[in-house]
Simulated assay, not measured.
Amino acid sequence: MKRIVILLLVTAQSVFAQDYEILFTKQVNNNDNIHSINQDGRLKQITNHPRKDSSPVMSPDGEYMVFTSERKGWWKIWLMNLESGEFKQLTDASSAEYSPSWSPDGNQIVFVSSRNGGSEIYTMTRNGNAIKQISTGRNNTMPSWASNGRIYYSSQVNGVYQIMSAKPDGSDTQQLTTGKGDKLMPQLSPDQRMMLYYGNLHGNMEIYKMELASGQAIRLTNNPLMDIRARWSPDGSLIVFERGNKRNNQQIYLMRADGSEQKPLTRSGYNYAPSFAVKVD
C-alpha cells in the first residue's frame, strides 16, 4: 500500500541513537502548512493549502493525522487519511477549536473549544461524533490523552495555570500541581513516571518535567528565548520542543529526556507545534 506517511529511520550520522521523524508547522509567506523533518534535516511537506494548517498529531496506528486548520472559517479540527490523502472536517462550531490529542486506542480525540463561552476540554470520536464537554471553569486548555487512560490539561486556578487530570468522562478530576508559575501543555511520559510541561516559574518560558511520585520539578532548559510546547518521543528517551520569539525566529529543537544535547532541527523562519511521528510497519 502506498502511504503518505512518515517513517522512523536510524542513521549512522545521528547524534541520538534513534532518529525520529518530527511533524511540525512551517510558516512561509504567512501561510502555514504541515511538514516533517528528520534529525539530518530532510524536510517533507505534508499539506499544501492556501489557508493555514497547524498542530499535527499522528494517530497511534499511523494511519491518520489530526490537526487544526482554517480551511473553512476560524481554527477547526480536521483529519487526514495518510494513506489516501483525503481530508475530513471534524468540528464546526463558531468558536476556535484546537489542541487535538489522540486517545491511546486511536478511537477518540480530545481538544479545546470555546463553543459554550469559555475555553473548555471536549472529547469526540475520531469521526467527529459524540462531542462531550468534560471540564468546567472556562479557562482550560492544552489537553493530552495519556497511556494510563486519563486526560491531562492545564486549568487556571486563582490566576495561575495548574496541571489537572480527569477520567475521559470528566469524572475524578484531580489537581496535580500548586504554587507559582503557569504549567502548560502537560504530557505524561510513556513509563507514566514523569509529567512534561512548559512554564514561567523562573520568569521566562522553559521546559520542565515533574516526578509524579514526589512532585519534584526538574528544569530542563535555560535559554533567553522561550522554550515551549514540549512532547515525549514514543520511547520516552527524547523530547521535541520549540525555541524562539514566536515572530520571525521560532525553531524546532530536539533534546534528551534529561535536557542534554539540545539540537536545532530547523534553523530559520517560523516553525512550531512539533510532535513525534509513530512507526508504521
Rank of each mutant, 00 (worst) to 15 (best):
R3H: 13
I6S: 13
I6T: 08
I6G: 01
L7I: 07
V10G: 09
V10F: 12
T11L: 11
S14C: 14
F16E: 02
A17F: 06
L23Q: 04
L23K: 02
F24C: 03
T25E: 04
Q27T: 09
V28T: 15
V28Q: 15
N31Y: 03
N31W: 00
N33D: 15
H35L: 05
I37P: 02
P50M: 02
R51M: 10
D53C: 15
D61K: 13
D61G: 09
E63L: 12
E63K: 14
Y64K: 14
T68G: 14
T68I: 08
K72A: 15
G73V: 07
I77F: 10
M80G: 07
L82K: 02
S84N: 05
G85M: 11
K88T: 08
Q89K: 08
Q89I: 06
L90V: 03
A96E: 10
Y98P: 00
P100W: 02
S101M: 05
S103N: 13
G106V: 11
V110A: 10
V110E: 00
E120N: 13
Y122P: 06
T123I: 14
M124L: 09
N127T: 11
G128R: 06
G128W: 05
N129R: 14
K132V: 11
K132G: 00
S135W: 12
G137Q: 02
P143I: 03
P143V: 07
A146L: 03
N148I: 11
R150Q: 10
Y152L: 14
Q156D: 04
Q156F: 01
N158L: 07
Q162G: 00
Q162S: 03
I163Y: 03
M164A: 11
K167P: 01
P168V: 13
G170D: 01
G170Y: 02
T173Y: 00
T173M: 09
Q174I: 11
Q175G: 00
T178L: 09
K180F: 07
G181D: 05
K183Y: 05
L184M: 15
P186W: 07
P186M: 08
D191H: 07
Q192Y: 01
M194P: 01
M194S: 15
M194G: 03
L196C: 12
L196R: 12
Y197F: 15
G199L: 05
N200G: 06
N200M: 12
L201F: 14
N204W: 02
M205L: 15
R219W: 04
R219C: 13
L220W: 04
N222H: 13
N222S: 13
N223Q: 14
N223I: 04
P224R: 13
L225V: 03
M226I: 00
D227G: 02
I228Y: 11
R229W: 06
A230T: 11
P234W: 04
P234D: 06
S237K: 15
L238V: 02
I239D: 13
F241A: 09
F241R: 08
R247S: 12
N248E: 11
N249A: 08
Q250M: 14
E261R: 10
P264T: 14
L265R: 04
L265A: 06
S268P: 00
G269S: 12
N271V: 01
N271F: 01
Y272D: 12
V278N: 02
K279F: 04
V280A: 10
